[in-house]
Design a protein around this nucleic acid. Structure first.
Lengths: 149, 149
DNA sequence: GTGCTTGCAAACTGTTTGCAACTAA
DNA sequence: TTAGTTGCAAACAGTTTGCAAGCAC
């Protein structure tokens, strides 16, 4: 099922409407690699269709989060980023504080352990957030990555 | 070494000054249990000594973070919280989304695993953040906790 | 036509900053 | 005396919201 279909389905179950803005935003999102900033998204969307207000982007992204079309991340720099949500594909993040590179990873062992710990404290986990911050060991590649972003 | 001593030492190494505001803020912090909000702290400080501006609280907390007197946490509700820093006592957080209870925990196994993963991706970890969000299994206790906060 | 959506600008929240007065050393 | 510090208010960044006009169904 394409994301447009997913969106259409979501909207109709709620009595909401499909609009050209929502379509453009979704298409733009799909064309951009992971972890877009709202600002980046705004600029990109306006290249596809000028006159889309930023309030619309904000509202639409909240809607997309509800529709499970995107996932929202707020890392320590305070800037909210979005990426397309993949069913059952939870992952965590590894972030280089020098160059800003964001790496995704997944670890079965840690997840299990988290659940065990939570259970021990009488809490059932619904979501979690794990971010590892550090610095690239390869200084050259790090510097190069910084230039490009 | 008391925290006041620690602060004094930190200030002198930087050529900064001890002031009555810094003293009051630190004393107030020590009298409050974990995870204070800036607002809560402001109110509490002003009960001890009126006329302390909120800008001073903000500036002082940043200073205390640098001095390793407090630790700063920004959980998903977007509100920054502080707690007194304990040397070598890193811990993560388990948060009930129903009642707001915050539990601290520490897990050697997870930490090791995190380092292994980071190394694999060529990054040396300096800090990390792990927050587990869920709901208390004991509904009664949960409701009671919510009342009190 | 009805009611959801949009763009704009204004409002809001949490935080930072410029500045003149003040104070620790 | 002199440089750091404070309180105030204004500035800021990111986000939300009220509203009249516009558009999907």
């Amino acid at each position: 099922m394409s994301l447009i279909d997913k969106l259409e389905r979501f909207l109709s179950t709620r009595g909401l409407k499909m609009t050209s803005q929502r379509k453009v935003i979704l298409e733009t999102l799909e064309s951009i690699p992971y972890h877009v900033t709202l600002d980046e998204l705004l600029v990109a969307v306006q290249q596809n269709r000028s006159g889309v207000g930023q309030a619309t982007i904000y509202r639409t992204m909240k809607l997309f989060v509800e529709a499970e079309i995107v996932e929202e991340h707020r890392f320590d720099d305070g800037i909210t980023r979005y990426e397309i949500y993949e069913e059952g594909e939870h992952h965590d993040h590894l972030i280089c504080l020098s160059c800003g590179k964001i790496i995704e990873f997944e670890d079965e062992l840690i997840e299990e352990r988290q659940n065990a710990i939570a259970e021990q404290f009488g809490i059932r986990i619904t979501t979690h957030k794990m971010e590892l911050y550090g610095h690239c060991v390869d200084i050259k590649a790090c510097r190069a990555h910084k230039q490009n972003s």
